[in-house]
């Protein structure tokens, strides 16, 4: 089976190579598009198992907008003739995949988990119904498939792929970027943290959030929040939001404090290594998704836990 992998993020692209190589006898090509000199990235992407790298360098691809990227990928696909196109499920990848599928008349599967290939069709699991269920979906034949970042290890080793340079042909109408504002450091902070302690609706007022500071200190944790606290109440900046419309985090330890566990939130922290929940409602969905849970009033449990950890660690 022929695979074409693409992400605007080189690390994610290496992860997709691993995903493609899991299928036996796969032939893997890489799409490398953008406005910068592809030489350096091309070297990074020359990992074991890669047979070709298709490069398109053009100023129109500078901001990785959906329309030019789709056109570039279509152009590469006409050369590489992939059965399956794997795209990193970053926001930019998510908006390109369906367009490319329409252009190439292929099926489209987004956020594929547990992806497998058999007899020329792809089968994957997808989280649906607010995280209550998983659907198994199958493509009739070829497909464009998005896979979440960090779902696979980066491919390694080295190879000498055939490098093909294409000239960008299609110019389609698109928006143009007129400004960028980086997220504040809080977000970078929660995404890279080894531990995250997040607050939810169980907190009665903004001032009470201070309760988390000591606990976060002992755990060397960054502080996050669920959507209601950021978007609806504005008690914390959006940059600290964990969830579908916020950041996806995968720390070693995730502590959900007063968070009921709606899909919106679970999507952003489900892959954490160890999940701990503190909630006064025993039936809260978060208790179905945690390793350890304390059923109790967070106003009592958080100080008690802080104290217990302080005593045991001597901090």
């Amino acid at each position: 089976m022929r695979f074409l992998v693409y992400s605007e993020d080189i690390d994610v692209e290496l992860e997709l190579v691993s995903a493609a190589l899991k299928s036996q006898g796969s032939q893997v090509s890489i799409a490398l598009v953008g406005d910068e000199d592809p030489k350096e990235n091309s070297k990074t992407l020359s990992v074991a198992g890669v047979s070709s790298i298709f490069q398109i360098q053009d100023p129109a691809l500078k901001d990785f907008l959906a329309e030019p990227v789709t056109s570039a990928l279509e152009q590469i696909s006409l050369e590489a003739k992939p059965d399956f196109v794997l795209i990193g499920a970053t926001k930019r990848g998510k908006e390109v995949a369906p367009k490319l599928a329409v252009r190439l008349k292929l099926g489209c599967i987004t956020d594929a988990q547990n992806l497998r290939f058999e007899d020329g069709h792809a089968t994957a699991d997808r989280v649906v119904w607010g995280g209550n269920a998983t659907s198994t979906v199958s493509s009739k034949s070829g497909a464009v498939i998005t896979i979440a970042p960090k779902a696979n290890e980066r491919a390694a080793g080295s190879s000498q792929p055939d490098v093909r340079v294409l000239n960008f042909e299609t110019k389609t109408r698109s928006s143009k970027v007129v400004g960028k504002k980086a997220k504040d450091s809080a977000e970078v902070d929660i995404k890279n943290a080894q531990a995250v302690v997040s607050a939810g609706r169980g907190f009665k007022k903004k001032e009470d959030l201070i309760l988390l500071n000591d606990l976060a200190g002992i755990l060397h944790a960054a502080i996050g929040a669920s959507r209601p606290l950021t978007s609806d109440l504005g008690w914390m900046p959006e940059s600290r939001q964990v969830g579908l419309s916020g950041s996806t985090v995968k720390p070693k330890l995730y502590v959900a404090v007063g968070i009921s566990g709606q899909i919106q939130h679970l999507t952003g922290m489900r892959d954490s290594k160890l999940i701990v929940a503190i909630n006064n409602d025993k039936n809260a969905p978060i208790f179905q998704e945690c390793d350890y849970g304390v059923v109790g009033d967070l106003y009592q449990v958080v100080p008690a836990l802080t104290k217990a950890l302080r005593a045991k660690t001597g901090r």
Binding site: Y292, V294, G296, L305, A308
Partner: peptide
């Protein structure tokens, strides 16, 4: 997930 729940007093559960 392990889903080990601690119930009872806050101090005991926290321990």
């Amino acid at each position: 997930r392990k889903k080990i729940l601690f119930e009872g007093s806050a101090s005991e559960s926290s321990e």
